[in-house]
Structures are given as structure tokens and as C-alpha cells.
């Protein structure tokens, strides 16, 4: 493998809820401006791992993280780090579209507004909606409630909302699991376009999706101990055609999970 430019790296990362370990000893290197997929059976801790990258786990009072997450070489869990700044720099899109019960415009403007944006808000809103391939559908009704949009449109709005503050990484937690196949296709296409400028990590239960969109794939699984761990990580092409670990092969060929 050649020398790579990594934006996020984990070193011996473990996550606990109370005293129970749910993810153990993950070492992962996320390449800049690429799409990295995290796959695995349900309960393997994919989402928990993803939520370590923007410190969303901090919001669960009992959650605790061990090990390191390096963001451009800086430890995300270091003592001088402000989690709200991390979440400003690293955007997130959720399993189910979760637009705020506000207008389309206010949804997109939310991030820039709270984080001290001083320039032309209308321009930011338009650019973000264009990037999320939603502009043409909503440009005439920016003041309409976001809740009036279809599920696929809502999810693209949530992507636009995340893009509006220009994060360097976008985390996506099964972003298509609540969408129909056509809306899913639109989001996947969008992800490929976005990966030119952004580093994307996507958690998905859908292996075809991981194979279609991602450059790299991490396979997590869980055994009797109920603790998720990383089995194999590498280029998606290789993982899906020629996995090293037989458990990965069993999973991608559909023999379990």
C-alpha cells in the first residue's frame, strides 16, 4: 500500500456503556476524500463506532470511550477539545431524516447561524441545497415547512443542512434505511459527487450499497461476548471479491448475519 493521507484514525478504540464493553480495540484509518463504509450484522456496534468520530456518544451519560481517535493527527478525546467544535467540523446524517420543524431555509441556515456565520446566508442556503441536489425541487418554497417534504427529500435536506457549515467529514448512519430504492439511488449518487470534496464514513447494513459506493470497507462483527470488534479493513474491491478472513467471506456471501 502506498503512503496515504488519513483524516481520521482510531487507535485501540473501545466503547463502554456503564461497565459493559460494546466495541473493542478498533484500529481504523479513514482516507481523506474517500468513502469508507462500515458494515456488519446488527448489534456489532457500527453506529456506536461512527458516533465516536463526532463525540455523539458524549450525549449518553453512561457511555465511555477508551483509546484514541485522531482527527488530522489531533486526539478528538484530548482534554482541550470542545465537543461542539468537533461536531461543527464533522457533520452527521442520521438513519431517519430528522429535519427540524422549521422552514426548509431555516433548516439549512441553522448550522451557519449558530456557529457565527457573517456573510450572505441566502447564498449559503442555495449552494448547500444545490450540492445536495435538492435546489430545483424546493427553490420556490424555501419558506415551506421541511416536514412537508417526502422522505427522500427530507434526507437530502438533512445532507444540505450538514453541508452548510462546510464540514471536512460527513458521517452517515444508515442514511438510506428509511428510504425507497429510487431515493436511495439519488443519495448514493450524491455521495459519490460529495466525496470529491468531503471525506465520508457511511454505516450501512446493506452490503450491495457498501460495494457500490465505498472505496474502503471495514467489517465489524460480534460474537457470544456481545462485544463488537473489527474483523477486516481494506479496499472495498478486495473485501468484496477476495476477503482474507473467512468470517468476512461468510458474511458477504450471506451465510450469516
Amino acid at each position: 500500500m502506498q503512503e496515504m493521507d488519513y483524516i481520521l484514525q482510531t487507535r485501540g478504540l473501545s466503547v463502554y456503556y456503564d461497565t459493559k464493553k460494546v466495541v473493542t480495540d478498533v484500529n481504523l484509518d479513514v482516507a481523506r476524500n474517500r468513502i469508507t463504509a462500515i458494515i456488519g450484522p446488527s448489534g456489532c456496534g457500527k453506529s456506536t463506532l461512527l458516533r465516536c468520530f463526532n463525540r455523539m456518544n458524549d450525549l449518553i451519560p453512561t457511555a465511555r470511550v477508551e483509546g484514541q481517535v485522531l482527527f488530522d493527527g489531533r486526539d478528538l478525546y484530548g482534554p482541550d477539545i470542545d465537543p461542539t467544535e468537533i461536531r461543527y467540523l464533522i457533520g452527521m446524517v442520521f438513519q431517519r431524516p430528522n429535519p427540524f420543524p422549521k422552514s426548509i431555509y431555516d433548516n439549512v441556515a441553522f448550522g451557519p447561524r449558530i456557529n457565527g456565520f457573517k456573510g450572505d446566508m441566502e447564498e449559503v442556503v442555495e449552494r448547500s441545497l444545490r450540492r445536495a441536489a435538492l435546489w430545483d425541487e424546493v427553490k420556490d418554497r424555501l419558506k415551506a415547512s421541511a416536514l412537508a417534504l417526502s422522505g427522500g427529500q427530507q434526507q437530502r435536506l438533512c445532507i444540505a443542512r450538514a453541508l452548510a457549515v462546510e464540514p471536512s467529514v460527513i458521517l452517515m448512519d444508515e442514511p438510506c434505511s428509511a428510504l425507497d430504492p429510487i431515493a436511495t439511488l439519488a443519495i448514493e449518487e450524491l455521495m459519490r459527487e460529495l466525496s470529491e470534496d468531503y471525506s465520508i464514513i457511511i454505516v450501512t447494513h446493506n452490503m450491495q450499497q457498501a460495494a457500490r459506493v465505498s472505496n474502503y470497507t471495514a467489517f465489524l462483527m460480534v460474537e457470544e461476548s456481545r462485544v463488537g470488534f473489527l474483523v477486516e479493513f481494506g479496499e472495498s474491491r478486495r473485501i468484496f471479491t477476495n476477503p482474507v478472513d473467512e468470517r468476512t467471506e461468510a458474511y458477504i456471501t450471506g451465510r450469516f448475519g
Binding site: M56, L59, T84, R87, N98
Partner: peptide
């Protein structure tokens, strides 16, 4: 729903902003 709060936190909101704006 908790997901609304998460959406706001994920944009870098403080607790005050999540509470009063969302």
C-alpha cells in the same frame, strides 16, 4: 424525538441552542 436533538447537536449546537432553538 431524540433524533431532533441529535440533529442539532451534530451541527455543533450547545445545550442552550438545542433547548431553545429546537
Amino acid at each position: 424525538p431524540r433524533t431532533l436533538r441529535e440533529g442539532a447537536y451534530a451541527l455543533g449546537s450547545t445545550k442552550l441552542e438545542v433547548s431553545t432553538l429546537v
